[in-house]
């Protein structure tokens, strides 16, 4: 069966050109969306932001002004607690997987970790509710536990990945000099991977810093300062949610300001972490 070769080739060329351009447009839209989100928050949030935001407490409905100082401190406390819970467990388990575990045991742990990582954050919130809130009530502690559990899987996987990227001869060198295995890990392997480890932890923190859902019924929220660890506390993401759904113009302005602050925090930490690890590869080759 013969076809007109000229026409066929024209059609093929046309399909080629059109489809390739379509894929380019898809990419541009995806990148454009980021700039749209960034730009919109810069404009809306940047103009809504003032000094009071960082220093004052929220004001009752009807009064103008006020800030979210308590939410900033609350978020910091919750994240600090989460880091103390999630990072050590994830990190040490990651060391075990990278340096000790046999293949079958390692893949079992890895499987469970991926499973835990895939659990929706709201379900982790229920878990923290079940083990903490039922006993001591809505509190900073419960919020910290929820986010801490969320940090474990990523802390583990990033630790394992970066330790595995350390060349084996470094370990052999240390052991040939008579170091025990744990000393080798502590003084040779971990220092060699330190940039990757730090950046992994930063990305992990940035990820949970924006989490809202599990905080709604663990940390709950608070219009005032939360004195200790066993009282409900305001957090920045939960505050954004609460203020965005309220029907007051001034609260919306505050929500945009809070969104701007949160987004900047998350993006700055992300970009810093990624540039740390980009520098780390040249370090490793030396």
């Amino acid at each position: 069966m013969r076809r007109d070769p000229g026409r066929l080739s024209f059609r093929r060329k046309a399909v080629n050109a059109i489809m390739l351009n379509v894929t380019g447009v898809c990419t541009l839209i995806a990148v454009g969306l980021l700039f749209f989100v960034l730009g919109y928050l810069f404009v809306k949030g940047g103009f809504s932001l003032n000094f009071d935001f960082f220093t004052k407490l929220p004001v009752p409905v009807g009064e103008m002004g006020g800030g979210m100082a308590n939410a900033l401190v609350g978020s910091a406390k919750v994240l600090l607690l989460a880091t103390f819970i999630g990072v050590p467990i994830g990190f040490l388990a990651g060391v075990y997987l990278a340096e000790y575990a046999g293949t079958a045991f390692a893949s079992a742990i890895r499987f469970v970790t991926d499973l835990l990582n895939g659990v929706p954050s709201i379900v982790i919130g229920i878990f923290a509710y079940a083990i903490i809130v039922i006993k001591i009530g809505f509190s900073t502690l419960a919020g910290g536990v929820a986010l801490g559990v969320m940090m474990i899987p990523i802390a583990l996987r990033s630790t394992e990945e970066f330790l595995r990227s350390v060349p084996v001869p470094l370990r052999e060198g240390a052991m040939a000099l008579g170091a025990t295995k744990s000393r080798t890990i502590l003084t040779v392997v971990i220092p060699a991977a330190i940039r990757g480890l730090i950046s992994g932890m930063m990305l992990n923190l940035a990820r949970v810093a924006g989490e809202t859902a599990p905080l709604l019924f663990t940390a709950l929220g608070n219009q005032f300062w939360s004195p200790g660890w066993k009282q409900p506390t305001a957090t920045l993401p939960a505050m954004i949610y609460e203020y965005a759904k309220a029907p007051y113009e001034d609260w919306h302005r505050q929500a945009w300001a809070a969104g701007f602050v949160l987004l900047m925090l998350v993006l700055v930490v992300n970009i810093t972490a990624r540039s740390i690890v980009a520098g780390g590869f040249s370090h490793k080759q030396r």
């Binding site: 928050l41 809202t212 993401p237 954004i240 965005a244 945009w256 987004l263 992300n270």
Partner: peptide
């Protein structure tokens, strides 16, 4: 470079997408 930007989009907290959803 573009993948880096797209991955940053993935890092934007969901509550911020909600904010843009409601108001934009």
């Amino acid at each position: 470079a573009m993948t880096f930007l797209i991955e940053l989009l993935a890092a934007v907290p969901s509550v911020i997408f909600g904010l843009i959803g409601i108001f934009v």
